[in-house]
Design a protein around this nucleic acid. Structure first.
Length: 851
RNA sequence: GCCCGCGUGGUGGAACGGUAGACACAGGGGACUUAAAAUCCCUAGGCCGAAAGGCCAUGCCGGUUCGAAUCCGGCCGCGGGUACCA
């Protein structure tokens, strides 16, 4: 063979790795462990370039760590429950189970050719009863630990599909599938008490040093801690049972600027007033429309004066009207507020619309009271002058005033300081079939009872149909029938299944003992946890990662994880997308038409279709089927090999940024790998005699390549590691060193390329007589002596502008360097006799002469 | 609105406060070849210049510094997150 032919070599090396059990993770007490994990995929059936990039990154880390002497765990599984399987069943028949396992088989077959160093013996899917059964066991443990409860919650209900919709599934107030107007319904739902951990989940973010700052910030905002005052207004003219109205405020210092109280349309008081048809109509108006961001944003503030009044806590003679307002949320604070229009823009808008008083409480530090045209909302840390103060100094910061106001309320007994969190409990009930059944039974005498663990897993029934809407579990003739684990009487099963985020909240722990008959095994979890490096998309910055952090805590509380795993992911890396141009034309009706990359002819002047139609090229968009800009990894592997795909997605762009897929870039990657192969191949027969000077120079270049590639990988700068490998290839190709020295350099090259292009590395390694598999060879070390240069070239600046350079021995003292610099011809010329005021010598870096 | 992040050649991107543009793509020129492909070599930020060389350049304006793409302040633009959160 005299050409680089990945289609032949790649399967060969994959078989060799399998035969040698190279990637089987083993608990080895003699070695440090390293657990690298990429977010597992949803089995859609096709891998895409994003998967290739994600898994290649993890693979580079895994292979590098294995070579560096770690016992590596690098597993793969499938996030296999969820709606698409049911949708497929509804659209084209078949069973979600068959669809899912078929897709898994397809995707596994597409992933294996990538040559990832995955321990496939640990593979599982979350829809395996062996997995979700253990999840049910943990659910029961969590019930016992007080982390699970039921309550009524308002949900988006699709009356046609007869299902609950997530907020994202409601589009313009309609169900995304059925197009039916979504209703808001109250259902009894299961919840995890994640709010028990609000404070801890927030505080512990500070310990996650190797997480992106951005993700920690997003989580902190999501948890949303606030400190404020909760107090009760005494009411006037309110219905029975509503003698007081509890409100919460983060700005108690503005109490003297109150001009109204407002309650949510879902507030119990509003419901109590609904017998009045005008109230009922207004409340119905408020409930209309979805909960989506755009709708809320564009909704106008509307209110309804209930006629009820409340007494100001600091002045019983002062009464405020109580309004029902559409911008008050029931599930934050108490669902009721007092409005201070002068210092809150929403209140200001509301007060302006309904002609309510606007009284400033404070002004800018040197300012005077004036009529406001908008709310005055300075930073809480800013000092302001209080003109309607009741606590603290006249001039103080907002923070000081808030603390003083809380202290005042507490000492006078009309309110208490309260810390609230935005984070709400995690509602996990889904009225769907393809999810983990909640292992609970409803008994007429015992009530809601956890299923006996001996009866786990509660399996999904196979004989279900999707020809009619609703939850197949609800209408199954026998599945719901069971006996109460407590009293033995006939009972009915819970038919809700769990949110699929539950499945992905502990899979990382399951990988440490994937076949165990308990959720985890103490010794395995103790050895393998935590995940040392977690890699995935930024889109999971909040929910998945927060739920996983909660689950690690819940699993610790229920004895399934050791204390050290309380934060399950030591380091997190969020990689960018793979993007591609979009090719667009417009049809006769002005609608956009998109074209596949393979149908496009690129030329200097632009792009056209085969028939010559000019195509608009939209650069760098996320790959999506509808835009037809998807590049199928399988086509790339078929034409260039897996190593080319791997090499390309790792080169050029920093891993955290998006990478633009270009055909020319892919070809260039392939050309380079061919070149490396050819150089290695030519070296097998080369017999150039040693050349001491050139051999030494090559050894130095090799050491530098080792150093820089190692640092590139360690620092997640794979693009820089690859740039160095390009450079090293150029150096090697042009080197005048002897054949033996070049072969040595090429063996090191194989080792350095192994994490990125493992098949080619093996081919080069074996061609040049490397021992065993390069995948099992220890990572090369750079001789520190070779990293130091004997002489250095120093640029000379005159007044900060580069004017000359000199080459001096690296260890020359600064005073000597100064002398040589000042004696330099160009320096003398540029100084033109001007006296030297100062000279700065940065050893090994630069000389700056100030004249 | 608020909170992050980012603005560097035709393009993707390099650059502990120290030679801006590594490496790659696209481009230009050449060698080899009957020809093409492949390969190899050279060139390549802009402007002026025959050249030597000079001047200008990291979104814009200012500041700190011997020295700023990098640090600070202000502006402009782009991207992401997020919200009637009281």
């Amino acid at each position: 063979m005299s050409r680089y032919e990945p289609s032949q070599t790649e399967p060969k090396w994959q078989a060799a790795w399998d035969a040698a059990g190279t990637f089987t993770a083993r608990r080895d007490p003699a070695k440090p462990k390293y657990y690298v994990l990429e977010m597992f995929p949803y089995p859609s059936g096709r891998i895409h370039m994003g998967h290739v990039r994600n898994y290649t990154m993890g693979d580079v880390v895994a292979r590098y760590k294995a070579a560096s002497g770690f016992s590596v765990l690098h597993p793969m599984g499938w996030d296999a429950f969820g709606m698409p399987a049911e949708n497929a069943a509804m659209e084209r028949g078949g069973h979600p189970k068959d669809w899912t396992y078929g897709n898994i088989a397809d995707m596994r077959a597409q992933m294996k050719p990538l040559g990832l160093s995955i321990d496939w013996s640990r593979e599982f899917a979350t829809c395996d009863p062996e997995y979700y059964g253990q999840q049910q066991a943990m659910f029961i443990d969590m019930m016992e630990a007080g982390l699970v409860y039921r309550k009524n919650a308002v949900v988006n209900w699709d009356p046609v599909d007869m299902t609950v919709l997530a907020n994202e599934q409601v589009i313009d107030g309609r169900g995304w599938r059925s197009g039916a107007l979504v209703e808001r319904r109250e259902l009894t739902q299961w919840f995890f008490k994640i709010s028990d951990y609000s404070e801890e989940l927030l505080d512990a973010l500070d310990t996650l040093k190797d997480w992106p700052e951005k993700v920690r910030l997003m989580q902190a905002n999501w948890i949303g801690k606030s400190r404020g005052l909760q107090f009760a207004f005494k009411t006037v003219n309110a219905p029975a049972g509503f003698d007081t109205l509890e409100v919460y405020t983060t700005r108690p210092d503005t109490l003297m600027g109150a001009s109204f109280a407002a309650i949510s349309a879902d507030h119990p008081l509003a419901k109590a007033l609904e017998s009045d048809p005008k109230v009922a109509a207004f409340v119905a108006e408020c409930r209309k429309g979805g909960t989506s961001a755009e709708e809320i944003e564009t909704a106008e503030k509307i209110g309804f004066d209930t006629g009820i009044r409340v007494k100001h806590p600091l002045d019983p003679a002062w009464e405020l009207p109580v309004w029902i307002a559409n911008f008050i949320l029931m599930d934050y604070g108490t669902g009721a507020i007092f409005g201070c229009p002068a210092h809150d823009q929403r209140d200001f808008d509301f007060a302006t619309k309904y002609a309510l008083p606007i009284k400033p409480v404070f002004t800018a530090e040197g300012g005077a009271e004036a009529t406001l045209t908008e709310a005055f909302v300075p930073m809480k840390s800013e000092r302001v002058r209080y003109i309607r103060a009741f606590a603290g100094n006249e001039t103080q910061t907002g923070e000081e005033a808030i603390a003083a106001a809380i202290a005042h309320a507490e000492s006078h007994g009309y309110g208490t300081g309260v810390t609230k969190f935005r984070l709400r409990d995690w509602g996990i009930s889904r009225q769907r079939y393809w999810g983990c059944p909640i292992p609970v039974v409803h008994c007429a005498t015992c009530g809601v009872v956890a299923e006996s663990k001996a009866n786990l897993p509660v399996r999904l029934p196979d004989d279900v149909t999707f020809d009619i809407p609703g939850n197949p579990l609800d209408r199954h003739p026998t599945w719901r029938d069971c006996t109460c684990p407590k009293c033995g009487a006939p009972a009915r099963r819970e038919t809700d299944t769990m949110d699929t985020f539950v499945d992905s909240s502990w899979y990382y722990a399951r990988f440490t003992a994937p076949r165990a008959t308990t959720p985890t095994v103490a010794e395995d979890a103790a050895y393998w946890m935590n995940v040392d490096q977690y890699i995935g998309g930024i889109e999971h910055a909040i929910l998945h990662l927060l739920y996983s952090r909660f689950f690690a805590r819940a699993m610790q509380k229920t004895g399934h994880l050791p204390a050290k795993a309380i934060e399950p992911f030591n380091a997190l890396f969020t990689q960018g997308m793979v993007t591609h141009e979009i090719y667009k034309t417009t049809d006769a009706n002005g609608r956009p038409v998109y074209h596949l990359p393979e149908d496009i002819i690129r030329s200097e002047s632009g792009a056209t279709l085969r028939n010559g139609t000019v195509v608009e090229v939209i650069p760098s968009a996320k790959m999506s089927k509808s835009k037809k800009n998807v590049v199928d990894p399988m086509n790339i592997i078929a034409s260039f090999g897996a190593d080319t795909a791997r090499w390309f997605v790792m080169s050029d762009s920093p891993p955290e940024r998006d990478v633009e897929w270009t055909a020319s870039g892919a070809e260039a990657a392939h050309k380079h790998l061919s070149r490396v192969w050819r150089i290695a191949h030519d070296l097998t027969t080369a017999d150039t005699a040693p050349n001491p000077a050139e051999d030494a120079a090559l050894a130095k270049a090799t050491a530098k390549a080792v150093d820089e590639v190692t640092r590139g990988i360690e620092g997640f700068a794979f693009n820089k590691a690859i740039a160095k490998l390009y450079e090293f290839t150029n150096t090697l190709a042009r080197s005048g060193a002897g054949a033996a020295a070049k072969r040595n350099a090429m063996l090191t090259m194989a080792q350095l390329m192994q994490p990125m292009t493992p098949h080619l590395a093996e081919e080069v390694w074996s061609t040049l007589g490397g021992a065993g598999l390069v995948a099992q060879a220890p990572w090369p070390k750079a001789d520190p002596a070779l990293l130091v240069d004997d002489s250095v070239t120093l640029p000379i600046q005159i007044n900060g502008k580069r004017r000359a350079e000199i080459t001096v021995p690296a260890d020359m003292p600064a005073t000597e360097v100064e002398k040589i610099a000042l004696a330099d011809e160009a320096v003398i010329k540029f100084l033109a006799g001007a006296p030297v005021k100062k000279i700065i010598v940065v050893p090994g870096r630069i000389i700056n002469v100030v004249a």
